[in-house]
Computed example of a mutant assay.
Amino acid sequence: MRIAAVRGDITEQEVDAVVNAANSSLLGGGGVDGAIHRRGGPEILEACRELRSTRYPDGLGVGQAVATTAGKLPARWVIHTVGPTFTPSEDRSELLAACFRESLKVADTLGASTVAFPAVSTGVYRYPLAEAAEIAVRSARDTPTNVENVRFVLFDTESYEAFTAAVQHSE
């Protein structure tokens, strides 16, 4: 598997699947979640509402992942995953790692060979960037998958540098 860090906008990635750093409601929010819903259009929200009314009436759990259409995005699918909120009093690294593992498992069920990930949990969920990058890259590398290309798409310089260092460290 090829793993890379790129600076850019995840909503512009021409990949099979884009991973959304969603909240448990699956109904949109801020940051990456809001950008994906805005750019992808109402089809994504409609698919998420269907999931809430059927498979996930209480919302998607932390570390879980589920796919929907990508709507107007240049990707085929959106894989929604809910990252943990960072707290210094509890180790939630396994929950963060699960976001990447479970997203790759969903990608496999879809037949996706290229997947773009954001920096899950590093925004309003406050996960320390360097630690999150190491967990993300290690989880992607260690997960048995048919995905051929994992791309971490980072919007700002600090995130891009942290993920670039994590990718280099994992090689």
Rank of each mutant, 00 (worst) to 15 (best):
V18R: 06
A107N: 01
A116K: 04
P42S: 15
L96V: 08
T122K: 08
E50P: 09
T145S: 11
V18N: 02
Q13R: 12
P74W: 02
P84A: 10
L96I: 07
P57Y: 11
G41Q: 08
V106R: 03
L95K: 12
P74F: 02
G83F: 00
G8N: 01
R92P: 09
K105W: 13
V137L: 03
G123H: 06
T109S: 14
V82Q: 05
G8K: 01
G41W: 03
A119N: 05
Y160A: 11
A4C: 10
E12G: 12
M1I: 04
D9R: 10
L110Q: 07
T143N: 10
I36W: 00
I135C: 01
V19P: 07
K72I: 04
A70Q: 08
R2G: 13
A133S: 11
H37W: 03
V137I: 12
F117I: 00
W77C: 04
A75C: 06
L27I: 04
D108C: 06
Y160F: 15
L154M: 14
Q168N: 15
G29I: 03
R76V: 02
E102L: 11
T81P: 00
I44L: 10
R55V: 13
T157N: 15
F117S: 01
A65T: 01
C99M: 02
W77I: 08
K105P: 04
G29D: 03
A132G: 09
C99G: 02
F152E: 00
Y56L: 10
T164Q: 15
P128N: 04
V82W: 08
E158S: 11
T85L: 14
S121F: 05
A162H: 07
D142V: 05
I3V: 11
R7P: 09
R7H: 12
I79P: 00
R92S: 07
D142M: 14
T69Y: 08
E134C: 10
D33N: 06
E161C: 11
R76I: 00
S53W: 13
S25C: 11
D9C: 05
S89A: 14
A5G: 04
F86V: 08
L51E: 06
A67Y: 09
A4T: 15
A35P: 12
E50G: 13
T164Y: 15
V120N: 02
F163M: 09
R2F: 13
A21D: 07
V6L: 10
A21Q: 03
T68K: 06
T69R: 05
V15I: 04
V19F: 01
S170K: 10
T145A: 06
D33K: 01
T69Q: 07
V115N: 00
S121I: 08
R2K: 15
L45G: 12
A67L: 05
P118A: 00
Y125E: 01
G29C: 02
